[in-house]
C-alpha cells in the first residue's frame, strides 16, 4: 500500500474547530485541563472568549455544556475519552442525553494507542458507554479528512453526539474528495470472501489486512463504519450477506462496541460466521502503540489470520 502522510485525528479536530470559529458564532468549546493534548487549544487561540477551561473537573464540565446548550449554544467538550465518558458518564446520561441537549463530546486519546501512559488512560469502553444511551449519536472517524468533515457535520447537527478521536498519527484512508455522511457506512474495498467492518484507526489496518489476504487470493470487502450509532444496518446486512462471512475490527473492547453492534444486527437479520476483533476482556498496559497493537492482536497480520479462521468456518458449513 502506498505510504501516505500520517495525521492524528485529534490534530484534525483542533484545526476543524479553529476553522469553524469564524463562521459558527454559536460554537463554544470546553476542556478539562488537556487543551494542548486534545487540541482544543487551537480553538482557544482564535476564539478565546468562547473557550472555557473547566479545570480537572469533568462532571461539572458536562453540566456547563448542558446549560450552554439549553441557551442555544453549540458546545464541544473535550478531554481524554476515559474521563469524558467514564468520569462524567452519569452527567452525560441525565444532563445531556435524556434532555436531548445539543452537546458534542469530542474525546481524544481513545484506545490503547495512548501508549506509554498505560491502562488508566486507555479508554476501551467508551463506545459501549455512549452507544447504550438513548438520543446519543456515536461517530468514530477513520482519519483526519473524515474527522474534519465529521466535526463540521456534528456542529450543524442538532442533538447529543460523541466523537471518538485518537492520539496517534495514523494513515489517511480517504482522499480530498471524500464526503462524510452521518450514519452511512463507506464501502472502501469490494470483495467476495469476507466483509471486514472497521472503525477509527482500524480502518487503515483493515485495508492492509485485505491486501495481505489478496496475496493469498482471498478477496475481502472493507467497510468503514464511522457512525456506530445510528448504525448503517443495510450496509452491514448487505456486505456480510454478500460475502457470507464477516469480522469487525476496533481499538476497543469486544464488549459493547462496534463488534457487539454488528453482532446484534447480524444475529437478528443475517446469520453468517462472524468474529469480533478487538481488545479481549482485559485492560491495556504501558508500551509503545505499535507494541501494544501487536500484543492485543490489532495488526494487519493478526486481522488477516482472524479473517481466514472465519472463512474456514464458512467453508466447513
Amino acid at each position: 500500500m502506498e505510504e501516505k502522510k500520517k495525521i492524528a485525528t485529534r490534530d484534525a479536530y483542533g484545526r476543524a474547530l479553529a476553522e469553524l470559529a469564524a463562521t459558527d458564532k454559536n460554537l463554544v468549546v470546553l476542556d478539562a485541563d488537556l487543551s494542548k493534548s486534545t487540541k482544543t487549544a487551537d480553538f482557544a487561540a482564535v476564539a478565546p472568549e468562547r473557550f472555557f477551561n473547566a479545570g480537572i473537573a469533568e462532571q461539572n464540565m458536562i453540566g456547563v455544556a448542558a446549560g450552554l446548550a439549553a441557551c442555544g449554544k453549540t458546545p464541544f467538550v473535550s478531554s481524554f475519552a476515559i474521563f469524558a465518558t467514564g468520569r462524567a458518564y452519569e452527567q452525560i446520561r441525565n444532563s445531556v442525553a435524556n434532555p436531548q441537549l445539543n452537546v458534542k463530546i469530542a474525546a481524544t486519546h481513545a484506545g490503547i494507542t495512548v501508549g506509554e501512559d498505560g491502562s488508566t488512560h486507555q479508554s476501551i469502553e467508551d463506545i459501549s458507554l455512549m452507544r447504550t444511551l438513548p438520543n446519543m449519536t456515536v461517530v468514530v472517524p477513520a482519519d483526519a479528512i473524515e474527522t474534519t468533515q465529521a466535526v463540521k457535520e456534528l456542529a450543524a447537527f442538532k442533538g447529543p453526539a460523541y466523537l471518538r478521536l485518537g492520539r496517534l498519527a495514523t494513515p489517511q484512508v480517504n482522499d480530498e474528495n471524500y464526503q462524510f455522511k452521518l450514519g452511512e457506512a463507506v464501502l472502501l474495498r469490494p470483495g467476495r470472501d469476507i466483509a471486514i467492518f472497521a472503525c477509527g484507526m482500524m480502518v487503515a489496518v483493515a485495508l492492509e489486512a485485505a491486501e495481505l489476504l489478496a496475496q493469498e487470493n482471498i478477496s475481502a470487502t472493507v467497510v468503514n463504519v464511522h457512525t456506530i450509532k445510528p448504525l448503517d444496518n443495510d450496509s452491514i446486512i448487505d456486505n456480510a450477506g454478500c460475502c457470507g462471512a464477516a469480522i469487525s475490527v476496533e481499538e476497543h473492547s469486544i464488549y459493547g462496541g462496534l463488534g457487539s453492534a454488528i453482532a446484534e444486527v447480524l444475529a437478528e437479520n443475517c446469520s453468517v460466521p462472524f468474529a469480533r476483533v478487538g481488545i479481549e476482556d482485559k485492560f491495556g498496559q504501558s508500551g509503545s502503540p505499535d507494541a501494544l497493537l501487536r500484543v492485543y492482536g490489532l495488526t494487519p497480520t493478526a486481522v488477516a489470520t482472524r479473517a481466514k479462521a472465519v472463512i474456514a468456518k464458512k467453508n466447513s458449513k
Binding site: V64, G67, L68, A70, C71, K73, P99
Partner: peptide, 25 residues
C-alpha cells in the same frame, strides 16, 4: 421547566452554562 433534574449535584453546573451563555449573548 428550564432544566431536567433529579440526579443530585448536577443543577449548579447547568446554571454555570446558562450564565455563561447569558454573558456571551
Amino acid at each position: 421547566v428550564d432544566m431536567s433534574s433529579g440526579s443530585l449535584g448536577q443543577g449548579l453546573s447547568a446554571a454555570n452554562g446558562m450564565a455563561l451563555a447569558g454573558r456571551l449573548d
